[in-house]
Design a protein around this nucleic acid. Structure first.
Ligand SMILES: [Zn+2]
Ligand SMILES: [Zn+2]
Ligand SMILES: [Zn+2]
Ligand SMILES: [Zn+2]
Lengths: 136, 136
DNA sequence: TACGCAATGTTATCTTATAACATGACAGCA
DNA sequence: TGCTGTCATGTTATAAGATAACATTGCGTA
């Protein structure tokens, strides 16, 4: 019984290995961290990681965090395509929370339309201190 | 008569040179592009650029575009501190438009508050095709 | 003058990402 | 069976972005 079910064609070996590392990680991982963790599985070069990540991002199973140059597994249980994702990134503990908010999406769409901009993808990354770290 | 007026302490020589390059550029510049353009002014090493950029970003005169690893001069005439900035980045021509939107800011604040997240800074970068490129 | 401090200069190194080219696996078809 | 296209993979080298560590300079002030 797997925690994730996917509509995508079955993952290739490398894609599955990379996704596995991201899934069991507590927080975001850099491509090179993933590489180091997978050396025991035979990984030798960055491209093996980057190629898998490209596909996983394309499938919507992994998100890239632009402000960290790192990657996280999508937190949605079924990994189905979701419009836009926003992320809250704690600068103290590194925890990343994936947020979905229709009002935010609407506002971004309105902003784009107002200037005739054809929106392809939105990057929303909130930086700050998470509730746990604030309390501590 | 300068186009920009600043409240900040006068810029240092290096800061002024870097800000000058960004101000006269059509679009965002990478740190290394700035370095190359300032070699004739005596710049030799990346740190000379990064240190100036750090200060300019701190002053609010320059913004870093996380999804491009590049920098732009703030488009506000007086460079006064503004809450949050969003950017629309054309993936065809590279043009970047700086947007300010109170409703967007409010929504981001609400989202953060709802989860007890202490917001420090928000990164909002819209990717897509600008009106000009769409028309062409 | 002597001190403190910020800016600057310099070299080396680290991290992140891609180019270029070769090989392997497999499906569809002659 | 052998050919061919395509996709995943492997490998080496290099490009691009960012920082560490340390030395030096310039300047205001006690
Ligand atoms: Zn997601
Ligand atoms: Zn935290
Ligand atoms: Zn601005
Ligand atoms: Zn454009």
């Amino acid at each position: 019984m797997t925690a994730h079910v996917h509509n995508h064609a079955a993952l290739t070996k490398n894609q599955a290995l990379v996704f596995g590392e991201l899934s069991k990680a507590e927080g975001p991982l850099s491509a090179y961290t993933i590489l180091d963790q997978l050396r025991s599985e035979g990984f030798r070069a960055p491209l093996q990681v980057y190629r898998a990540l490209d596909k996983l991002v394309e499938f919507g199973m992994v998100h890239r965090l632009e402000s960290l140059n790192a990657f996280v597994a999508c937190s949605h249980k079924d990994c189905e395509a979701h419009s836009a994702a926003a992320f809250a990134i704690c600068e103290k503990c590194g925890q990343v929370t994936e947020l979905s908010d229709a009002k935010l999406d609407d506002r971004l769409r309105e902003l784009a339309e107002a200037t005739g901009f054809a929106l392809t993808k939105s990057v929303v990354e909130l930086r700050g201190i998470c509730a746990d770290c604030k309390a501590a």
